[in-house]
């Protein structure tokens, strides 16, 4: 089956398992998975973009920091991102551009509030294509 991400069931919270041919794609799909929890991505247009650059001590931390940066942007600017260009990515450094639009309550139904990405059950698997797993606090 060819899918970008799937939802991981957890009693209190919700996780995402994202796939990609490479790490960049898996990071982008994890981010799309995050925003799919917040609203229907089909209702979101690409009218604005933001650049994000991060460093972390290892690839797992980088994934958590990447998603937390997006949670922060959503919480402070109300931007729902639906597409990402990963410009640079290695185990400790990420440069990306996210495209989306600001929340408009007339067209976006907000579903789940995401407090943060956590380190619990965190996985980055780079064998046979990439698979990343992260649990959010909801």
């Amino acid at each position: 089956m060819n899918k970008d991400f799937e939802i991981l069931d957890h009693t209190a919270d919700v996780g995402i398992i994202a796939y990609g041919a490479d790490l960049s794609q898996a990071f982008a799909n994890a981010a799309r998975g995050l925003f799919s929890l917040i609203t229907e991505l089909d209702d979101v247009e690409e009218v604005t973009h933001r650049d994000i650059e991060l460093t972390a001590s290892d690839v797992e931390s980088l994934l958590v920091e990447w998603l937390n940066e997006l949670v922060y942007q959503f919480d402070t600017e109300g931007i729902i991102f639906k597409r990402f260009d990963i410009i640079q990515l290695n185990s400790t450094h990420l440069k990306a551009r996210g495209y989306g639009e600001k929340v408009d309550s007339s067209k976006h139904e907000l579903k789940t509030g995401v407090k943060a990405a956590t380190y619990h059950m965190l996985k980055v698997d780079k064998n046979n294509g990439c698979r990343v797993q992260v649990l959010f606090d909801i």
């Binding site: 001590s57 922060y72 919480d75 402070t76 407090k115 380190y119």
Partner: peptide
């Protein structure tokens, strides 16, 4: 609210180091 969420996010990262 987001204030506490961000403090926890920040310190889980810092204390991870």
């Amino acid at each position: 609210r987001g204030f506490g969420h961000q403090i926890c996010t920040d310190y889980v990262g810092l204390l991870g180091e």
